[in-house]
Design a protein around this nucleic acid. Structure first.
Lengths: 113, 113
DNA sequence: CGATGTACCTTGCTTTACAAGGTACTAAGT
DNA sequence: ACTTAGTACCTTGTAAAGCAAGGTACATCG
């Protein structure tokens, strides 16, 4: 694994969490479906070994709540929905990210572009 | 440490690396000075325990090169400068980050803002 | 009854940020 | 001379996250 590939892994840390929260802003979703949707987002990508622990963390922190729904075409689905705290936290995270990116731009944007 | 504080730590991973590379686009710098400059960037912040291993990785990967310069007001300074590979890699990283952020916006920007 | 698709979860590995500590040089107090 | 503070580098140990790989279980189709 070369430097750039490894970097893309590292840069996901944190951003994936926000990615999932933002996806849940659209409405409740179940895990397997979240994976498919995130895979479609250019630059992202996620596997089960990443998503399920991530969702557990979000639930443990009270940012999401779950409900089980029977499915006629397979095993039961666990739907995740944002709590009020989750919506508030995701807003704060988006703001903080914006601040960081602005800071990043002040560095390499001094005289270029 | 609460969820948000921990998230800010996680989101630095990868971004800090790019932050330092972008700072070096301005010209060669030595470690102690990089710390002071990054501390001034809103949203960022870095300590010695983070920067020195980070710089070692960049050098090991051939993205930067170093030279020692004696100082009359303290210990010798180790100046870091980007190599050609380093400039190329930082450009690729900036592009990839832009792609990721665009993807992130397509998620929570569907009907909001 | 095997294979495929759906859907969940866990284990082990690697990488990183950070706090804390360590070394060493210079200069200014006391 | 001794101590403190500022500069400047580096290392160690801990916690957290992504990911490959594997495991379980239900449904459907051949």
């Amino acid at each position: 694994m070369d430097f750039f590939d490894n970097w893309t892994v590292q840069v996901r840390k944190g951003l994936l969490e926000l990615c999932v929260l933002n996806l849940l802003l659209e409405g409740e979703q179940y895990g397997y479906d979240i994976i498919r949707k995130v895979l479609e987002v250019p630059g992202f990508g996620i596997t089960e070994g990443t998503l399920y622990p991530l969702l557990s963390r979000l639930k443990m922190q009270g940012l999401v709540q779950t409900r089980l729904v029977e499915s006629s075409s397979g095993p039961a689905r666990k739907y995740y929905a944002l709590t009020a705290k989750g919506r508030k936290t995701s807003a704060t995270m988006n703001e903080h990210l914006q601040e960081i990116l602005t800071g990043l731009n002040t560095l390499h944007g001094k005289d270029k572009r």
